[in-house]
Nucleic acid binder design. Structure first.
Ligand code: FES
Ligand code: FES
Lengths: 152, 152
DNA sequence: TTAATAAAGGATAAAAATGTCCTTTATTAA
DNA sequence: TTAATAAAGGACATTTTTATCCTTTATTAA
């Protein structure tokens, strides 16, 4: 569906946005820790997002990752596009090389509905909105930490 | 989304169902050719479908793969479950270890809608129905063969 | 200018998914 | 019973995805 790299990227970006105030910058290890991602892998992903100007980075002491005002209203789909590309939203569910209404696979109609719903979910949700939800405590980007006694 | 193995499996099964008459049996190479899948890989996939009793196989001369009457009304989701498992329909879209309404990720509500739509698509579609569509020429399990002059 | 800090980037490793090859087993017809 | 046929199954190879390590570059404060 959505690659792990992309999921880390989305969670990381939401975290960065949720800390968007008074020039705060976050470094890789903080971000990786917050979203339960391996640090070096997280670094690669943030690199891509930075190169796509979805987030902004600054090297050196007092540097790190942050988000600028003009980046706040971007839809999450930008992250998906930067990391995974748009193919999830375009490809045939049964693996035909082309998805088209003129040469459809037998699941085309039903599949397209779900695929479009997914695309709309990512298209019509802004980074700002997601971060706001997290800041208000309504949702989370970090796994629930279970005590040893609790099972999954 | 759906693994390649699973897509081959679904297309292959639809093909087998579409040829469900008078004890016709299909062998691996016919099936692989029809669904544009590598033969040896197709063999592995048919093996698991057979073991899950989604299709039936018979060894030896005049053997091959076919479908029995009692197998016709199975929903496609059985194939997905046999090959990929049910995790696509259960996991968090942003990669949290648990998807739950009590500790939701910030995309939970929107994502769940799309994910459930996908599950319903596979759950409420029977093999028989898909094969019928193909037999009536309304849809296809094989890629459109392009002439050399035509581009993608 | 220098030392320290943090991201960028290159190279490599590990794991998972996809794909291939070859031997074994079951079934059939002759 | 034997030879032929076709799936089952084991082992291995390739590709893609995920993850790690180390060096280089940019920036800052002292
Ligand atoms: S052709 Fe298969 S989903 Fe459109
Ligand atoms: S918690 Fe993320 S989709 Fe349910």
């Amino acid at each position: 569906m959505i690659s792990k790299a992309c999921q880390y990227g989305i969670r990381a970006t939401i975290f960065i946005v949720s800390r968007h105030h008074d020039g705060v910058k976050l470094n890789i290890s903080e971000i990786a820790r917050e979203v339960d991602a391996p640090e070096a892998f997280m670094a690669k992903i943030l690199q891509v997002l930075s190169k796509h100007r979805i987030i902004t980075s600054l090297k050196g002491p007092y540097g790190g990752f942050f988000i600028e005002d003009f980046q706040l209203e971007q839809p999450v789909i930008k992250i998906v596009n930067a990391i995974d590309g748009m193919s999830v939203f375009e490809e045939c569910g049964l693996g035909l090389k082309q998805c088209s209404a003129s040469h459809p696979c037998p699941m085309h109609d039903q599949y397209k509905i779900a695929r479009d719903a997914l695309q709309n979910a990512f298209l019509h949700t802004s980074l700002r909105k997601l971060a706001q939800e997290v800041n208000e405590g309504d949702s989370f980007i970090k796994n629930l930490a279970l005590k040893k006694s609790e099972s999954c």
